[in-house]
């Protein structure tokens, strides 16, 4: 072994009562897609504390600009121009640098550029709806996009998703892998949504609501929202490290 044991430390247990449960009857699709048996809890092994790494060779520098990354030359998508920015941190409040953040979303009318989306709101010819970036040394990331619209979905007959952006983050270990959704401050649909309501704790729901950030707003140009993401934290191994088995 050429590396110190210290770096092989484990991640904190995931708080499964903070996350949504697998089975949430009001989100109907979860009924047939949730395991009935309990999860088997593992102590971390090298298979869980390692994970893929990404670099600037993997993505293009402009992949984080959804206003331009699918627009015809000289054109731009229709909608409210926004910046979404924030930091990726761990539970110890330490930044997670050099990690891949991917997002996807509907356009300003709530329509996804996806062959399975048949909602009658039109496609925007200048909007793709996906972006990706890598956090800097301080765990900071930013995207430019248009604010997505609400859209209807077949759950109960009159269910509408609040405006949201899907967010995928890797961290540095497969144990930190996370997909979530960002909502926008003040959206009245947040309180009615069965997917939001899969999360049992109101404070946990608050953690998914991006705040209007006037300080980062560019005057006469683009409104900003701030959204920090927290991944699992990691133990400092003070006395022993049974992970290495020595």
């Amino acid at each position: 072994m050429t590396k110190p044991n210290q770096t092989m430390a484990e991640y904190y247990q995931r708080d499964r009562r903070w996350h949504p449960p697998a089975y949430a009857k009001d989100y109907k699709t979860s009924v047939a897609r949730s395991p009935k048996f309990s999860l088997i809890s593992l102590e971390n092994t090298p298979s869980e504390i390692t994970g893929p790494r990404f670099g600037h060779n993997d993505i293009a520098p402009t992949d984080n600009d959804l206003i331009s990354n699918y627009a015809q030359p000289g054109e731009s998508p229709i909608g409210e121009r926004i910046i979404v920015h924030g930091r990726v941190l761990d539970e110890n409040a330490r930044p997670v640098p050099n990690t891949l953040v991917e997002i996807w979303q509907a356009n300003a009318g709530g329509r996804y550029r996806h062959k399975k989306d048949t909602y009658l709101a039109p496609i925007d010819p200048n909007f793709g709806g996906c972006g990706r970036t890598i956090t800097d040394e301080n765990g900071y990331y930013y995207f430019r996009t248009v604010k997505p619209g609400a859209y209807p979905w077949r759950n109960w007959v009159n269910d509408w998703r609040p405006a949201h952006i899907h967010v995928s983050v890797f961290g540095s270990a497969f144990a930190q892998r996370l997909i979530t959704q960002l909502y926008f401050e003040g959206d009245p649909l947040i309180k009615t949504c069965p997917i939001v309501a899969t999360i049992p704790d109101p404070d946990a729901i608050e953690q998914l609501i991006a705040r209007l950030d006037m300080n980062a707003t560019i005057p006469l140009d683009t409104i900003a929202y701030k959204f920090d993401i927290v991944l699992r934290g990691r133990r400092s191994t003070l006395f022993e490290n049974r992970l290495e088995g020595n």
Binding site: E91, S168, I195, I199
Partner: peptide
């Protein structure tokens, strides 16, 4: 300590973000 950001479903259109060719 901070709390981990809670998970949400990837939804029906996950391909747009993570496999746009398939979308």
């Amino acid at each position: 300590y901070l709390k981990e950001t809670p998970s949400q479903t990837a939804g029906p259109y996950v391909h747009i973000g993570l496999a746009p060719g398939a979308a």
